[in-house]
């Protein structure tokens, strides 16, 4: 496990960006990537033909060309921008809350191993549980507003950070802590100067997971209750039986989440 400190983090991007253009070109030129892309286009073309020729009803599958054209209409991009702003605003707020809540809990579970052992299996179960199903309850408790979305995002993301934070602290080598003790550091100094920094990579893995969980859950609930940003864009068009629009909105959400995943991967490489 590498010890990524603040200095390393800020130095990394510059090194990356210099070669990233080159790396991109090399990726594009890879015949395999080209082949994959051609197959993707061929599939779209086949669907286009099937729908245009009436083999598949337009009331079921939209013409790919219509769906793609929809992405470029000015009203759509305006709406997409607003939806992204709302959804990401919620995701970021939820994530900040998750970090603030989960890391102290993770630390507590590490300091008090009996509690850690007691809650370990519960946390694992919660992690695999369909947390988003709780939304009808919070709809009636909190009401149909952004707080419900925020809370549901939080509930989904807080668990992986707790699990990872505890794991991160548990795997800090004892020798490091002993070194700290030999320098007569206080418990809080040991935490801030030794435990937390050396746990960063693992905690970051948890945060990354939490980010995806939070995003997925918020979009899911936006879709189910027809509120908020990105998820609502899909459910709204589906509700209006706008088939081409539904496909367009789904593609847009797909593009947004692919972009986000790329960014996260890049960030993660920097931290490592």
């Amino acid at each position: 496990m590498s010890k990524a400190k603040g200095v390393a983090i800020s130095a990394a991007p510059r090194r990356n960006s210099a070669s990233s253009g080159l790396r991109f070109l090399r990726t594009i030129a890879d015949p395999a990537v080209l082949f994959g892309f051609l197959v993707f286009v061929a599939i779209l073309g086949a669907v286009q033909w099937l729908v245009a020729s009436g083999h598949i009803s337009r009331a079921i599958v939209a013409l790919p060309s219509d769906a793609i054209a929809g992405l470029f209409s000015p009203e759509f991009s305006g709406e997409l921008f607003r939806a992204c702003r709302l959804t990401f605003g919620l995701v970021v707020s939820a994530l900040v809350l998750e970090i603030l809540v989960a890391i102290p809990i993770g630390y507590f579970l590490y300091r008090k191993p009996v509690f850690g052992a007691a809650y370990e299996s519960w946390l694992a179960a919660l992690f695999a549980a369909p947390i988003f199903l709780l939304y009808p309850l919070f709809m009636v408790i909190i009401g149909r507003n952004n707080y419900t979305l925020l809370f549901m995002g939080f509930a989904a993301g807080v668990i992986p950070i707790i699990i990872h934070a505890r794991l991160a602290f548990m795997t800090v080598p004892d020798t490091l802590i002993n070194v700290g003790r030999s320098f007569h550091l206080t418990q809080s100094q040991i935490f801030w100067k030794i435990i937390l920094p050396s746990g960063v990579p693992t905690i970051f893995a948890g945060i990354r997971l939490a980010l995806i969980y939070t995003l997925i859950n918020i979009i899911a609930i936006e879709f189910l209750v027809d509120a908020g940003g990105l998820g609502r864009m899909v459910s709204d068009r589906y509700f209006r039986f706008d088939i081409a629009g539904t496909y367009t909105a789904i593609s847009a959400v797909a593009l947004v989440s692919v972009t986000l995943n790329l960014i996260i991967n890049r960030l993660e490489k920097m931290v490592r």
């Binding site: 009636v140 009401g143 149909r144 507003n145 209750v225």
Partner: peptide, 17 residues
């Protein structure tokens, strides 16, 4: 104002939202 299903709407009325 869009408030969603009837039960969520009821909450929002009862809580003054």
């Amino acid at each position: 104002v869009a408030t969603g299903a009837m039960n969520a709407t009821h909450t929002m009325v009862m809580t003054g939202q």
